[in-house]
Design a protein around this nucleic acid. Sequence first.
DNA 1: TATGAATGAGAATTCATTCAT
DNA 2: TATGAATGAATTCTCATTCAT
Lengths: 229, 229, 229, 229
Amino acid sequence: MPVSRKLAPAKKRAPPLAPPAAEPRARDAQRSQKEILDAALDEFAAHGLGGARMDRIAERAAVNKRLIYYYFENKESLFLAVLEAAYENIRSEEQQLNLTQVEPLEAIRRLIAFTWNYYLAHPEFLTLLNSENLHRARHLKNSTKIAAMHSPLVATLADVLERGHRLNLFRAGVDPVQLYISIAALSYFYLGNTHTLSTIFDRPLLAAKARVERLSHMTDLVLGYLVRD
Amino acid sequence: MPVSRKLAPAKKRAPPLAPPAAEPRARDAQRSQKEILDAALDEFAAHGLGGARMDRIAERAAVNKRLIYYYFENKESLFLAVLEAAYENIRSEEQQLNLTQVEPLEAIRRLIAFTWNYYLAHPEFLTLLNSENLHRARHLKNSTKIAAMHSPLVATLADVLERGHRLNLFRAGVDPVQLYISIAALSYFYLGNTHTLSTIFDRPLLAAKARVERLSHMTDLVLGYLVRD
Amino acid sequence: MPVSRKLAPAKKRAPPLAPPAAEPRARDAQRSQKEILDAALDEFAAHGLGGARMDRIAERAAVNKRLIYYYFENKESLFLAVLEAAYENIRSEEQQLNLTQVEPLEAIRRLIAFTWNYYLAHPEFLTLLNSENLHRARHLKNSTKIAAMHSPLVATLADVLERGHRLNLFRAGVDPVQLYISIAALSYFYLGNTHTLSTIFDRPLLAAKARVERLSHMTDLVLGYLVRD
Amino acid sequence: MPVSRKLAPAKKRAPPLAPPAAEPRARDAQRSQKEILDAALDEFAAHGLGGARMDRIAERAAVNKRLIYYYFENKESLFLAVLEAAYENIRSEEQQLNLTQVEPLEAIRRLIAFTWNYYLAHPEFLTLLNSENLHRARHLKNSTKIAAMHSPLVATLADVLERGHRLNLFRAGVDPVQLYISIAALSYFYLGNTHTLSTIFDRPLLAAKARVERLSHMTDLVLGYLVRD
DNA sequence: TATGAATGAGAATTCATTCAT
DNA sequence: TATGAATGAATTCTCATTCAT
């Protein structure tokens, strides 16, 4: 039962990550915004949009709460900003796979592995998307750039499929969007729902061995379907 | 023979002005609890655990808010109760597929179709699970019956795979849990993330035609992998 | 996070002292009232009037909550009933000291020791009185019998003082009420405030040795004043 | 340059109708905290911890209820803050008696009179302590400074007793803590229990005459014991 | 650009008490 | 005499947001 009486307002928890900052910190707009976004990503990922707390974001970012409103209008806008940044990040890393430059079979393998590993490394991306879907993509629909961010991905996958088919390697008539959704689905569901799945099946789905098996299973599944015999 | 003298309480609570008397609904504990659970399912599904409002649940259930606490300790316990009921529902319908009684190929087809249609008809199940995963299955881990509810499912699928293999139809060495997760994943991600996916791919994923295509794609995918050539 | 879903309402704590009592217990008005009073005494003593919970009283008494209202109108009336019973108890035990039958010096010693031991054995009496004083004796003032219960005590003490004086043992002009209040005060404050006193003086006031010393000190104090040299 | 686009929050909170504009009081953290503490002291003293209402405290302090939580974690922390302030106050006034600078007999007289008058002037101190004892000093035990606040008092009284004894005035072997408790007890019980005592003895204990008599009786009692014949 | 002080509108939860049988 | 079901009115505490500097 901590007591605070003198001047400082009561703090619920031990002081935040950053030192108490007696004097106002150096003014660096760029940096402040970045820290807010990072903190907000963590917070929204950890608690969802409804469960996220502006107070905690300010604390994590080590900025004054008021500053968040200065830069990001309100909670919802901040959430959209976080979402866009998250999409930008995954799409940008994806681009670096250079799928159009490798042979089709390898391209598919790489895409599956990349997706799996990215989700594994960025669990916050999954919960973020879940939150946005809970809200029926309300925020994303206000985004001007989001669709444009995804056409290259579709084009790339279409190219891979086309090349695979011309080499008489892949089956015909595969819809790239459909396939991409399936590839994402296989990793997304397993990782995003690990907690419930581990509980209901009473099985450690994130153990090292289980992870290797899952990647292998997913690859088999997709290639088993895709590759013409 | 009561011993009390009329001693006025410290501060009389204002007497109710007039009885509303809109013919009070019959007292039925069973029914009240059911209505609360139904309302809570809707509310949790629509807003997540954090966004759900006890007030709205009471309103939807048409019961006094206090009654919720009378039957269900608190919000979290209510959430677990809802979760368990939701799992019970899907597992029970699944059981009625009688997968052990049909030939393996048909069994797999049915399972895929059932999963797809169930999720389509029960979008609340998806958001509910997302919420629970956001909370790292905190509630479910307190459930005593959840794991037991799932062993029949695994056994059934194992039986189907085994029979398919003995008929020289299916490939060997398929892990039923792994496969079940994949089957669920393909529907779950598509339907649970329809809003964001529709937005980023700018495509109406829930249009009648799209739905038919998706079910077909998923079936092809799974059978393409499973069926030995 | 206990869950209760089926028919029974949620219980916050493990079942009360008494067994769940599936069938309504034998109808015994006398006994029910006694159990309610006992439970209420404990509860009011432990939490004060404001902090006491009717629910807990019902639980402790192992009767239905509604029954309390049947016998004791409301919380305040119940509190008064408890108070009166408590006073009755101490006065009745006090009476059995037969102070008028022993020599004055011994009578005073006995009264001091009795008071000390009674408070020690009945800490609930102290907190009960504190509660009533917090409420400015609001309940007691409604009592018809309380003053009558105390005149014998005053008479007895007056008699002792008078006899002591006539024997040239005690000083003259001692007001029995004043003296009684002092005797009670010395024990009451020490025992009723043990927790804060032990904390501020950092000393275990209830240790066996400390108790012996206190009784001795109080006796010295009172007799040092009373006894003529 | 804020990056936010105007994205309306999920549900706009209704805009305030019109600013009350009764010339807002200057923002003064120190003063706000003081007013809250003062109001809380009154409220806790009047109703006990359980009966105190945060709403009323806010109202009395003329601050927004939320501000209480801004400065004082919660009700319990506020209670401890109030307690500590109360102890600080009495101990500080006591210090100003300069008991070490006056002759022993006078020192004891002064201490008795001071205690009596302080309790008379600060009835809230008594009820506050009663509340804390009801809670078994739960809050005080979390205080770091409380014990330190009391050692000077004990030292002072020890010095007085020692000097009195060396002057062959006081009896030997008197424990200062024991004596202090007795002195406090005599006033505390009389004043803290005035309401019940007046009722059970049917006598106006706070009448001017009664007060004079009580102080005189207490002084006689203590000195009768302390002073060597 | 930055911040400490302040707030209105809820939010979950509690509580004494009454209803209906 | 006894009880499970039900409730209106608080009560503590929370939260996004704004004020004033």
